[in-house]
């Protein structure tokens, strides 16, 4: 069967009927987008592969609950993003709290909602891997807090609309706009700092 002419929903329908080739088609379409998002979130290719695998397996076993009214890519990215964020939350190595939630109304609330940024202390291999990811813009994206990173990557690299990003991240639309604006501002500041 020629899958190239089919859209995601049709391929999913075939997968639901037990066609292994349909599963492979979905993998071929989304292994790079999903892996790219995850690896830029965790900055560790090996770990990213494990998380991306887990996301696909979980999604495939839950295909019966996929609602075709929504985009398959949004549904899949939501699963991958949730897995990644869960992992980042569980990982507590040398954490340094830098920012609170953008919606925080007081310094106490900001402190309470601050996100822990993991200082992994790059190994030589990680250093090389990070640099291979592509220069200063990659390094700058790696320094963003996870919410900003996800929002910017989904918006600019994957081309999702603000509404789709909000659906994937399960946050209000206004919050997504805040994440993306602040994230881009931080990127610009960082790059200006490097250039100076």
């Amino acid at each position: 069967m020629e899958y190239a002419a089919l859209d995601d929903r049709e391929v999913v329908a075939l997968a639901c009927k037990g066609r292994e080739t349909a599963f492979r088609e979905l993998l071929a379409r989304y292994e790079r987008p999903v892996f790219s998002l995850v690896v830029r979130m965790v900055r560790d290719p090996s770990l990213a592969e494990d998380l991306a695998q887990e996301a696909f397996v979980k999604a495939f076993h839950a295909l019966g609950s996929y609602d075709p009214r929504y985009k398959f890519s949004s549904w899949l990215f939501k699963i991958a993003n949730n897995l990644t964020i869960d992992h980042l939350r569980k990982k507590q190595l040398d954490t340094v709290s830098i920012h609170g939630a953008p919606s925080a109304g007081s310094s106490e609330e900001e402190a309470r909602t601050s996100i822990a940024v993991v200082d992994t202390g790059e190994t030589p291999e990680e250093y090389t891997a990070n640099r291979e990811l592509g220069g200063q813009i990659e390094v700058a994206i790696g320094r963003l807090r996870p919410e900003y990173r996800t929002a910017i990557l989904l918006r600019h690299v994957e081309g999702h609309t603000y509404e789709e990003v909000a659906e994937i991240m399960e946050v209000p639309l206004g919050t997504v706009k805040t994440y993306i604006h602040r994230g881009r501002s931080e990127l610009k500041d960082f790059l200006a700092e490097v250039a100076a």
């Binding site: 993998l27 892996f35 790219s36 990213a48 592509g134 881009r184």
Partner: peptide, 17 residues
């Protein structure tokens, strides 16, 4: 940002899934 490339997982990713 938009020029950031998509990154491929290691070979055999689909098979492992």
């Amino acid at each position: 940002i938009e020029a950031l490339p998509r990154i491929s997982p290691a070979a055999g990713f689909a098979d492992r899934v």
